[in-house]
Every structure is written in structure tokens, then in C-alpha cells.
Computed example of a mutant assay.
Amino acid sequence: MTQSEFIRLVNGKPWANRACSFDAMDCWGLVVLYYRHVLGLELHHVAGYESGADFITCYEQEADHWRTVPVAAAGCIAVFYRGDSPSHIGIMTSPVKCLHSRGEFGFVRSDSPVALLKIYSRVEYMVHASI
């Protein structure tokens, strides 16, 4: 599946806590689906994710599989922080657009990371270690 096909398929889909399907997804579920269907990579499974473990716990278990990059590029993840804690994640579809699924009653949409920094304190860009 191309990135454009993926964006068309998920854009506007509802956010659902711990969901990872094309019917509904949370922010991590969106990343898993993107890596699986666009990049052909199966991400490390985080034990407890579907059972409601909080985002920070899941992120800490998964962080070893990623490396920080200095600037955004298509296909990298954007990790958004509140203070020192990661609290949201999305996929950079270009150096200036982030596809993400945010919060209760939210949905998948594309925003500038600069716009998201009105909500979050900072952003970090990362790529999977296998890339």
C-alpha cells in the first residue's frame, strides 16, 4: 500500500483507546498500521497495550527499538511531550505534516507539528532501528 492510499484509508477514522484496526485506532495503533501496511515492517508487540496500559509504559517498553533523528522526514514518528513525559505519537507523512489520531472523541487527521506544539511542549523525531 502506498502512503497516499494509507492516508486516504485512515483519514477521518475515529480514535478509540488501544485500537489498531482500519475501523478505529489510537495514536500507537495508527503507527503500527502504517509500519505494517506502508513500510512492510511488523513493530515489536508491547505486552499490555490492548489491555489498557498507559501510553508512557508502552512507550518506555518500545523506545529501545527506535533512534532519534535531528529532523522530520516522511515515515519517521513524531513523539510529542508534555513536560518530560511522552504523551502522543504520529507519523510524519512529509517534513511538515504529521498524521495522528488524537484523544477521546477525536479522529485521524493531518496537522503541522508546529500546530501540535500549541498543545504539547516539544516534539522528538525517531525512526525504527531496522530502517
Rank of each mutant, 00 (worst) to 15 (best):
M1P: 13
T2S: 15
T2A: 11
Q3G: 15
Q3D: 13
S4T: 15
F6V: 14
R8M: 12
L9Q: 14
L9N: 08
L9H: 08
V10D: 04
G12P: 04
K13S: 10
W15D: 01
A16L: 13
A19I: 00
A19W: 02
D23G: 02
A24H: 10
M25Y: 06
M25N: 07
C27G: 09
G29R: 09
G29T: 10
L30Y: 08
L30N: 10
V31I: 12
V32M: 05
V32E: 12
L33M: 13
L33G: 06
H37E: 07
L39P: 00
E42F: 00
H45M: 01
G48E: 06
G48I: 05
G48M: 04
Y49D: 03
E50D: 08
E50H: 14
E50Q: 12
G52H: 06
G52N: 07
A53D: 12
A53E: 12
I56K: 06
E60L: 13
Q61S: 06
Q61W: 01
E62T: 01
E62H: 04
D64L: 01
D64F: 01
R67Y: 12
V69R: 06
V69I: 15
V69Q: 03
V71H: 14
V71M: 11
A72Q: 05
A74T: 14
G75L: 12
G75P: 09
I77G: 10
I77F: 09
I77V: 15
V79F: 07
F80K: 02
R82W: 11
G83K: 05
G83H: 05
D84C: 02
S85N: 11
P86D: 07
I89S: 01
G90K: 08
I91E: 04
M92G: 05
M92S: 05
S94W: 07
S94D: 08
P95Y: 06
C98F: 03
C98W: 03
H100D: 13
S101H: 02
S101F: 02
R102C: 08
G106M: 09
R109G: 14
S110L: 15
P113S: 10
V114P: 01
V114I: 13
L117I: 06
L117K: 11
K118M: 13
S121Q: 09
R122W: 02
R122P: 01
V123I: 08
V123R: 07
H128R: 04
A129Y: 00
A129W: 00
